[in-house]
């Protein structure tokens, strides 16, 4: 069984030889190359070089292409700000200046889509026979927040119809993004709707679940596997995440992995998590990282689980910390 088969079988809840390992090498890949994050997030060849470096250093079973859930918002006209060590941040919301009717679904030649899709194609070509390639796209709730700003948290109470109109549009954008990525040959498309960890379970049912269905339907119709990921304390919504219809759901260290495993087993879906990002990966020692990985492996078990950080690996994370996790994973080889 090669690495790619290991991950794909994991998501189908089939037997595997050992637990798969997927380091979310996002902005950290820029550090591996000695460049700033903006270069990685704007140049396809730099992105490809960074991902290849991550492959060489961390011996993963899967890797992401571009870990940037601001891509769609930027293409729609949101203002973004760059920093040296992080993905871009949305700092201006397009719907504060334009009407929803004025927006249209981005085409693959808009914004940074060309570099993102070119990068994905090249990564698939280089690594796609060996490891599982994940495309990460913004979820509709997160995209809605990017488009309209925090006003939506008040409008969810006072003006729900308006929020739902934006969500419907965002869902179509996410569906298009998933389609573009599926055509590059990636294996798995993960919908990252991080901000859904910060709403109630009732709001999740009303404002999140229905808007993910068309996206997941498109991903599955195109023969790809799917994931749902939310960072933050998503405990109150883990059950909703498990039942949203994706092959797996991912959580960060704010969620008890035992609880995630129980819910995943109850609903027959795979799950992933949840190496602590800052306290262990960024600031811990290699020994602490090794132990954290062993703890996750023990808790996650061998059925329908893969090991990954809670979110994208911080830029300055020491290489030896991530390599300690790789050692822990490989110590479980039969």
């Amino acid at each position: 069984m090669n690495s790619k088969e290991r991950i794909l079988r994991t998501l189908e809840l089939q037997p595997i030889d050992r637990v798969g390992w997927v380091p979310w090498v996002g902005a950290h890949a820029a550090n591996l190359l000695g460049v700033n994050a903006k270069q990685l997030f704007t140049e396809a060849d730099t992105l490809v070089a960074g991902v290849l470096k991550g492959y060489e250093l961390y011996q993963p079973d899967g890797l992401p292409t571009l870990f940037d859930v601001q891509l769609e918002a930027e293409a729609l006209g949101c203002e973004i700000a760059w920093s040296d060590e992080n993905p871009p941040a949305v700092v201006g919301h397009v719907l504060e200046k334009a009407a929803l009717n004025d927006l249209s679904i981005p085409t693959p030649d808009q914004g940074r889509f060309p570099m993102a899709l070119d990068g994905a194609r090249k990564i698939v070509k280089e690594l796609g026979d060996h490891i599982a390639i994940f495309a990460l796209i913004a979820g509709p709730f997160t995209l809605t927040l990017h488009l309209a700003g925090v006003k939506i948290f008040t409008d969810m109470y006072d003006n729900p119809d308006q929020v739902k109109k934006i969500l419907s549009f965002a869902s179509q954008v996410c569906e298009a993004t998933a389609r573009y990525y599926a055509e590059t040959g990636v294996d798995i498309i993960t919908v990252v709707d991080s901000l859904t960890s910060q709403i109630s379970a009732e709001h999740f049912q009303e404002y999140v679940t229905p808007y993910h269905q068309p996206i997941l339907g498109t991903i599955h119709r195109m023969g790809k596997q799917s994931g749902f990921f939310a960072c933050g304390d998503a405990t109150r919504n883990v059950e909703q995440m498990a039942t949203i219809g994706a092959h797996f759901f991912g959580v960060d260290e704010n969620v008890d992995l035992n609880y995630a495993r129980e819910i995943a087993a109850k609903h027959n879906v795979a799950f992933a998590g949840n190496l602590p990002l800052a306290s262990v990966m960024l600031f811990g020692t290699p020994e602490e990282n090794y132990q954290a990985a062993i703890d996750c492996l023990n808790t996650g078990g061998k059925k329908g689980f893969f090991l990954c950080p809670g979110c994208d690996i911080p830029y300055a994370t020491p290489i030896e910390n991530v390599q300690a996790i790789t050692r822990a994973v490989h110590s479980r080889e039969m």
Binding site: F153, T154, Y157, S197, Q198, I199, G232, N254
Partner: peptide, 21 residues
């Protein structure tokens, strides 16, 4: 848990974005 809003060092909103009100 993160993110958390503390007011006078008291956690008021733990992993939930409050409405303006």
């Amino acid at each position: 848990k993160l993110p958390t809003i503390l007011i006078n060092n008291v956690p008021e909103f733990i992993s939930i974005i409050p409405s303006e009100h």
